[in-house]
Amino acid sequence: MKDKRITLSHGAGGRLSHDLIEEYFVPCFDNDPLRALDDSAVIPVQSGQANRLAFTTDSYVVKPLFFPGGDIGRLAICGTVNDLAMAGARPLGLTASFILEEGLSLEDLKQVLVSMKGAAAEAGVAVVAGDTKVVEHGAAEGLYITTAGIGQIPDNVTITSAQAKPGDAVMVSGPIGDHEIAVLMARGEFSLQGEVESDCAPLNSLVQAMLKVCPAIHSLRDPTRGGLATVLWEIAQASGKGVVVEEGAVPIRKEVKGVCDLLGFDPYYLANEGKLVAFVPEKEAAKVLKAMQKHPLGKEATVIGKVTLGNPGKVLLHTPIGGHRLLEPLSGEQFPRIC
C-alpha cells in the first residue's frame, strides 16, 4: 500500500509497535545484539591494549529531513561516530532513539533507516539498540533522532583540547561550511540555487589513518555547530595557548563563499559534519598531512595555522593583506544581513 503513515498506535507499545520494529528497524540494522530484542544490547569488548572507553550522545533535528549529500539518518550516525573518533576511539556500537511525528510517511522513515544503515556500514559499526516513540501531529517535525555511541581508545592515544602545544600544526581535513550551506539551500528560504552538498561523513577511518602514522596527535575536533572559529577558540581556551590561522590557507568552496557574500555570513562559523581539525606536533605534521591526503575524506586536507605561546586563549587570524584580527566564537544565530 502506498503512502502508509505513522499513527499514534505505532507508539502504543502493542502489536503495531512490534510490527514497526520487526518490519522496519530490525531488518535494516540487522545485527546479533539487536536481533535478540532484549532490554539491553550485549556487545563484546575487544581485549588488548584499549582500556578506556569513549561514550557520547547527540540529538538530531535537521530541517529538511533530506538534503543534498545526506539526511537526518546519515547525520545521526556520522555525528556520533565522529564524536567518538575525535577522542581517538574505535566505535563498538551505537544506539538510536527515534521520536516520530504522527503522519510521517513510512516511506520516508524507511529511507532514513536505509541511509543510517549505509552510514553505519561505512563507519564499520552497528546500531545495536534503539527505541521508538510517536508524538502527535505538530509536536515534532517529521522525526528526531538521538544516537549514543561507545568506543574503545587505544592505550597509546590521548587526545584532548587541552593538549595543544606551541609549535603544533593546525590542519583541517577539507573545505569548510559545506554542510550548513547545503542544508540552508535545501530549505529554500532565500531562493538560492546551487550545487553544494553536505560533507556529512564518518571520520573514524580517517582518524585511524592519522593515528597510524602519529599516535601522538594532541587535539582533534569536528567543527559542527559554531564552526571552525568556535572549535579553534575552544582549543585555545582549554590549552591556554594561542592559535594563529592564515586566512588565505583556509579552504572554502567558491559556492560557499558565494552564499556567504550574499547573506553576509562568516564562513568560519558555519557547521560541518564531515571535517576535522587536528593539532599535530610540528615534527609529525608532514607525515600526518600526507596520510590525510591519501584518505578519500582528507584529499583536500591542509595546514591552516599553528599554536603559539603568545596570545593565550585567543585565535588570531592573519589576513591576506598582512593584517590580523581576533576570531571570536559564534555568538547567537547568524542572520542574513543586508548591511
Partner: peptide, 11 residues
C-alpha cells in the same frame, strides 16, 4: 533575471 554569484544563483 537569474544572476550567478560564484556558482550560486538567485533571482
Amino acid at each position: 533575471a537569474v544572476v550567478d554569484f560564484n556558482g550560486v544563483r538567485r533571482e
